[in-house]
Amino acid sequence: MKVLAIDTSNIVMGIALVEDDIVKGEIITNIKKDHSTRVMPAIQSLLADCHITPTELDLIVVARGPGSYTGVRIGVTIAKTLAWTLKIPIVGVSSLEVLAANGRYFDGVVSPLFDARRGQIYTGLYRYEGDVLECIENDRIVLSSEWARQLQEKNEPVLFIGSDVVLHKEVFKEVLGDLALFAPDSLQLPRPSELAFIGMKKEPENVHSFVPNYVRLAEAEANWLAKQGEQSRNENSVSSNDSCGY
C-alpha cells in the first residue's frame, strides 16, 4: 500500500510518501512561496528518491481545508486529478485535524488553528482517545476571543497548535490563564505523514465531486444569498460542512 499525501492548504507545503505503515519520505517547507510552482516538483522528486513511479501509487490523501482558498484548491486539484487518472481512491482530511495530530500525548484537548484575519481563526477541538484522534467540536471560523470564552467553560487544559497561534496567544492567555498551553516551534507545522495515516483510516470519496472545504462561501455568493433573504442556507453550509472524521 503506497500512499501519497498532499497538504498545500496553508503556508506550509507538505508532501509525504507512506508505504505499508513506513514513512518513506516527507517534504515540509514553511516559506511564503508559490505552491503552484513547487508542489509538483516536490512530488516528482520525493517519488524519484523513493524509487516509486506514479502508477504504483494506491491512495491519494489530501488536506482539503480550511485554509487559503487558492492554496487548498491547488492541492485538491492535483490530488483529484492524480486519483482520477491513476484510477485510485482519494481521501480528504481536515487541515485542522492534521495539525491536531501533533498533540498526540497531550493530556487535555487540542485546538489547532489558522489565522482567518480580522481577529478570526479557523479552528476546531480534538482529543486523543488512546491512539485515536477524535473531533469534539467541528471545524469553524470564529473570533479568537469568542473561542477562548467557549474553551473556558470546558475548564480543562487546551493545547494550541499552529504557526499562527502567536497572533492570538495573548487572548488565550488572558481568558484561560494556566489552562492555555502552546506547542513548541517544532510541533507547529502539520506533518504530511500524519495526514497519510489519518487518511488511510477514512472512507474514500467520489473523485469527480471531491471539493475543498472552504468553510466560508465566496463573498459574492454570501452577499447574493443575503440579498435573496436566504441567509439561513448560508449559515447551515458553514457549520455543517464535513471536518470531523466520517
Binding site: M40, I74, T85
Partner: peptide
C-alpha cells in the same frame, strides 16, 4: 485562480 486549476490538473496528468 482559474488558470491555476487547469495548469495543476495538466501537470498532474503529464506527471502521472
Amino acid at each position: 485562480g482559474a488558470l491555476l486549476i487547469g495548469v495543476n490538473a495538466a501537470k498532474a496528468l503529464a506527471f502521472a
